[in-house]
Structure formats: C-alpha cells, structure tokens
Amino acid sequence: MSYSDRSMRSYTAPLLAPASAASSSQHGYDVGLLLLRCMVGLTMAAHGAQKLFGWFGGQGLDATGHGFAESGYSAPKAMAVVAGLTEVVGGAGLFLGLLTPLSAAAVVGIMINAMAVKAGGGFFAPAGIEYDLVLLAAAVCLAFAGPGRYAVDHLLPVLRAHRLFHGVAAVAFGAVAAGLVLLIARN
C-alpha cells in the first residue's frame, strides 16, 4: 500500500463514521414514526369499528348515535356513521402511512370533537380530555413529521416528498372541519 493510499484511508475513515451515524439516526427516526403510526392508527381504527360494528366491546351504531344525541348533535346516527368511518379510514391511513397528512387531519378533527364533548369533565380520563389530547398531539406530530420511510407514501413518488407545509395544512384542515361540525351539527 502506498503512502497516498494510507493517507487517503486516514482521511476517509472519519468521514464515513458520521454518515453511518446519520444513517442509524435516520433509521431510528423512521422506526419511531412507524411505531407511532401503527399504535395511533390501530387505536383509531378500532374505535371506529366499535362505533360502526360494535366490535371490540363497542356499542354499535344505534347506541353510538344515542350518545351523539345526548351530546347535542343533530342527526346523531349520521354523525355516528361519519365519526366511525373517519376513525376507521384515518386510522387505517396512519397505520399504512398512506396519505399521512390527510389521515392525521381526520384524527385531529375527531379528537377536537371528542374534547369538545368532554370539555366539562376535567383533564384526567375517563371523563376528561387527557386521552383525546394525547391522540390529538400524536396526530399533529405525524402530520408535521410525515410518515417516515417505512410507509406507503414513501413508495409513491408523488407522496414521497413530505413537507412541513403539508402537515400545517392538514392540521388546519382538520381543525376547521372539526369547528364546522361543532357549529353545524351540535345544537
């Protein structure tokens, strides 16, 4: 090995270490987003299945509609269907990492409505907004951060380039939609 080969190796070795560390850091970031997406997505989809089908110990549409009526929503059975579908579709989207900002917007909207219903119950669960606030915060974080590399969005060239703007727009959309539902659908 010539002097220049040894010299080059001593200069390139330190340069490779940060790249490897950055790759490991990115992998950890992507795995963290995958786990968060899966947990929030499955939780939301399961809640939607409770409302729509009575699965997982849920009440089904009739009882959920009755709950919406007691909370002051007009057209309570329709609201139960909308809420259940939004939770299933938004949750499945987060789980898959598909249309992640829109999926997160669905969760944001549902959680704002849930917190509005529970507003008088204080902070801590089960009557308070604690649980709903954590799900809302997780959805906002996913909207801002994007789905990571282990997501369907990453496989689609149009969706691969997640931007902070997408997250901000999605959170704003979810909040505005929730506000409209609260203004129009609640007495």
Rank of each mutant, 00 (worst) to 15 (best):
L135K: 00
A151Q: 01
P18A: 11
L136S: 03
P101W: 11
A138K: 01
T100C: 05
G97H: 05
F173T: 11
G57F: 14
L85E: 03
K77I: 00
I110T: 15
S23D: 09
T12M: 13
V40D: 02
P157N: 07
S71D: 05
S4I: 14
R163K: 15
M115I: 08
A116W: 08
A92S: 15
Y131G: 01
V108G: 04
A139Y: 04
H166A: 12
L135Q: 02
G97D: 09
L35S: 09
Y11G: 07
H154G: 01
G174P: 00
S23G: 12
F95W: 08
T86V: 09
P147Q: 05
N187A: 08
S24W: 14
Y3H: 14
L99A: 14
A178G: 14
G146M: 12
V81G: 03
N113R: 00
R37N: 11
A106I: 01
L94T: 01
I110F: 12
L98Y: 10
A13R: 13
F173Y: 08
G72A: 12
G174F: 00
V152T: 08
A106L: 10
D30Q: 05
S2Y: 09
G72E: 12
A161H: 14
I184A: 13
F95S: 03
L36V: 10
V176E: 03
H47M: 10
A172M: 12
L85W: 07
H66F: 08
G28L: 15
Q59M: 10
A151H: 00
L42Y: 10
E70N: 10
F165C: 02
A80D: 01
Y150P: 05
L35T: 10
V107G: 02
R9F: 09
V140F: 04
G128R: 04
S2F: 08
S103G: 12
G58D: 11
S103E: 02
K51V: 03
Y11S: 11
S23Q: 10
S24I: 15
G72V: 10
R163T: 15
G109K: 01
L33M: 13
K51Y: 04
G60N: 09
D62W: 04
F124T: 07
V181Q: 03
P18I: 11
P76D: 08
Y73N: 02
F165Q: 13
F123D: 04
M111K: 02
V152S: 05
L96T: 05
G28H: 06
G84S: 09
M39T: 13
V88H: 03
Q50G: 03
F144G: 05
V176I: 15
Q59S: 13
G120A: 13
V31A: 12
G93W: 02
S2D: 14
D62Y: 05
S20C: 11
N113C: 09
A63D: 09
G93R: 06
V158K: 13
A63R: 09
A78N: 02
V140C: 07
G174M: 04
T43Y: 02
A80L: 02
A116K: 01
K118V: 00
A21K: 13
I129S: 00
H27W: 14
G109E: 06
F165Y: 11
A125K: 03
A69W: 12
S20P: 00
L42S: 12
G48K: 03
L16M: 15
V168D: 03
F56H: 14
P147L: 04
L52W: 06
H47E: 10
V158P: 00
L156P: 03
Y3E: 15
A139G: 06
A151K: 00
V152N: 06
A49P: 06
R9K: 11
A17P: 00
K51M: 08
A21C: 08
V181F: 06
